[in-house]
Design a protein around this nucleic acid. Structure first.
Lengths: 203, 203, 203, 203
DNA sequence: AATGAATGAGTTTTCATTCAT
DNA sequence: CATGAATGAAAACTCATTCAT
């Protein structure tokens, strides 16, 4: 009986957690596709199959939802870099990152890089640069920069931070152009150039 | 009397044109700083010193105003490239472009590249890829690409279009990072890298 | 023509001012009757015969409307004391104030003293005592206290401020009781007592 | 075993009663501090350490909770007057009441008299004068009036009911002013005046 | 009676766009 | 074309109350 109660309790908690995840995933997707400002809470609620009022049980404000979506994207990045970390050679790791980017070219051409477009929008959203949301977008980018810098460091190149900036800026730039021109192949072409650059670096 | 009427008519037309220009300039500035979705028509009207109701005699919809702002940015780009065209050496022309970008680093770090952020926002604004606004943003970028490609062509490099994409993507990427990290110096550092790259290209 | 334009302009301004007054008056009445928290902007809009959205053209927030209603009550008090100031004898002036209070006994018994009930509600509305609204309610009361103190001073009684407090507190107390017990006659009886007290004071 | 069950039952009943008391006490406090309309059921539940959904097993509606809070205040008044009833002299009893009021001056200056502010709010809450809640507030006040009238009667003054009204109105008035002006000392000063008045009465 | 979660109606506020003059 | 004002459709958020377990 204690068991049944416990399992009942935990299954309830599990259901709640699952719903929260559903909402977060829906938010991440819809916010990326429609943009923060054009997305109504109702859009996310509908995408997650949840009544609007109920969303506020899980997220107190829209900003909280945006933050959760951002965390979701961060998690994607972390998963990706964790996977790449299993590759022995740092150069191969970096090239793996570029490959992953290029693999997302259809999405990027349609909606842009999730992190990049979010950063652009959040920058306008809160005029006070002290706020948490704006900075949150910067954190995701910084995490990527840090990871890349570490690889360049292992490669023994001078100014690994500068190289990281060049790499990530290259990605953000090509995503933006691919999106603006609706051209996924641009991602492939620029990706190849980045790969060649990575090959030439650090020798 | 006909004269007086005519001059009155033309001065009135001139005043109208001036007002339109004021509105366009205000739109370009405010839309860049606050973002499209967070800017109300009233904000632009106020910035231009024009009564709200009057705006609609110059621009039928908010999208028209956005389009005009975009055209304003295009004009800036055109002015810039026209100036650069006076420089005899194509490589120097391209380096002049980079210099101009870096010169705008404070604005870029605060609000991003006007064209780039606008493109990101407009992409979300119109879900139909056939819409005019979305494409308008693409046009500005394409014009820049075309001009750069022409310089690379004159430089005699292979794949001038690809080089153009790399250059403009580099600019968009560094603007986005500088903005996200609120770091104008990033523009300087990446600018230097672009300059070095331009020096190394086409030999 | 200039005339016609001017008169057109001023009549428009006059119409706007009239509407603002209508809204203020409706707000003063409805807020008194239903209370601040139970009154929706829609209630006031309806009472004034104005569409809801239009209210915000005249008052930026609900608090602004409450403030205007408060100012309306202040104006009533000022009108009243200005009228009373024409009476030569200070004691007669104070007794005239009590008479005016008692004359409002039906309203007081039904809805309480406008100023007093508003003060009670606004005190809860803003937990920060630094806010403007809360203090605004205090101002009306303070103005009444100051006026009464001046009369007591002219009467030559010691501690005119204390006498003023006693008088106004007596009014607020009897209004509250009359309201709670729904008994207008209580106002009459306590009013008589205040009158007798005023007769006995300062000799 | 029957015993054990019975005791388990009664201890459960006792726990239920304790929870009800906790809720009532929390309601009395929070409703006084934040006001009825600005207090959510969740606020009271949290203050009482009771899960929100559970509240409804003890109180069917929010109004029921408000009523219970009102009863709590009534109980306070009853406890107070019961204590005072042990004093032999009726005049001393009345002066003891005033002392008790003045002793609460800090609370009164911050949140007003619990009964008075509640009465004001409840008056707006139920537009139908037949409703139970509104009347409930009146009852507390009436009980105080009755007790005071009894003391004045024992003192042998004419119109003891009128004297009771004056006393209680004096208290409500000074509480409201002290609250509006955030001035606890006003309670002391007016309290002294009431004490002097009580000394002068009925001789 | 226990409790986390669900629901849906209501409220304030914003704004693009239109209208009357 | 000028201009203050009007309008109505969202959108974010709150909460009393109910439900499933």
């Amino acid at each position: 009986m204690t068991d049944s109660l416990a399992s009942k309790g935990s299954s309830r908690a599990a259901a709640a957690a699952a719903k929260r995840r559903r909402l977060t995933a829906a938010a991440a997707r819809v916010l990326h596709e429609k943009g923060v400002e054009r997305t109504a809470i109702a859009d996310i609620a509908q995408a997650a199959g949840v009544p609007v009022g109920n969303v506020y049980y899980y997220f107190k404000t829209k900003d909280d939802l945006v933050e959760a979506a951002l965390a979701e994207h961060t998690a994607h990045v972390t998963t990706l870099t964790d996977d790449l970390d299993r590759i022995p050679d740092p150069r191969a790791r970096l090239k793996g990152l570029v490959d992953a980017w290029v693999a997302q070219r259809e999405t990027a051409a349609r909606y842009g890089c999730p992190t990049g477009t979010l950063a652009v929008e959040l920058d306008k959203r809160d005029p006070e640069p002290s706020g948490g949301l704006d900075r949150a977008a910067a954190q995701v980018i910084r995490r990527l920069l840090d990871w890349a810098a570490e690889q360049f460091r292992e490669l023994g190149v001078p100014d690994p931070d500068g190289h990281a900036v060049t790499l990530v800026a290259g990605y953000q730039g090509m995503s933006l152009l691919a999106n603006a021109l609706r051209d996924p192949d641009l991602m492939t072409r620029e990706g190849d150039r980045l790969l060649a650059w990575l090959d030439s670096v650090g020798d």
